[in-house]
Amino acid sequence: MRLTADGHPSDELLSAYLAEAIDDPAVEAAVSAHLAACAACREQVAQLQIITALLAELPAPSLPRSFALTREELERLRPRPWYLRYQPVFRWASAVATVLLVALLGLDLLTAGPAAREGSGPAVNRQALPEPTAATPVAALSAPTEPIAGAGGPEGLPRELLPAGKEVPTESSGVMAAPAEPTMSTPAPSPTPSPELGTAMPSPLRLAAAVVSMVLAMTLVLGFLLPRLAKRRVSRLP
């Protein structure tokens, strides 16, 4: 096989041979055969080898400075999702809510006896308000507003910590209706509360505990579950 007009492989072909970049095996074999017979071409290949070896050991220039991005650039150029930005707040809120919930439930257990009797007192007062329309759904919605205010003490702390306050009232009021409902469905209040009626009505402690457990559930979802789900979604990207 004749490689070039003068019989010798071109500089480029020798370079490709050295880099094992000749795709045609027939050409490669021809260059190989030529090199075995031609000292001049062998010398060219040897020169190329020296040049590439010296290229590989060229010293790297010194860096003028570090190119690390500043904290400000990292935050500004890639805004993180809101639930990641407030993740520490959610996590702290969930811790506080857990402590609060345990305290409330413990208190409830300790005062179980008297709470059953005394708890009925305010419940009666509350029911006096919606009494005329006790059976209508409008009343069922408006009724829980007072229990929330009543439970404002324990709930206030986690609510302050939650920046996404928008979701707190909707969630809690929706759930608040559930524990409040039994008071609606109970027959007209009798001035002398029977023991079984007292146990059916949630005490302020339990209402507070219900609110706190809702807050706890939400902060757990926002602070732990959502970031984890987001991370899994990201890592599934190609």
Binding site: L63, F67, L69, E75, R78, R80, L84, P227, L237
Partner: peptide, 22 residues
Amino acid sequence: VRSGEVTAFNVLVERYQRTVYT
């Protein structure tokens, strides 16, 4: 970096700044 740990990007910077600059 994509899942919010933005400072991890600077590890990539440290790893390749010499190559890119050279």
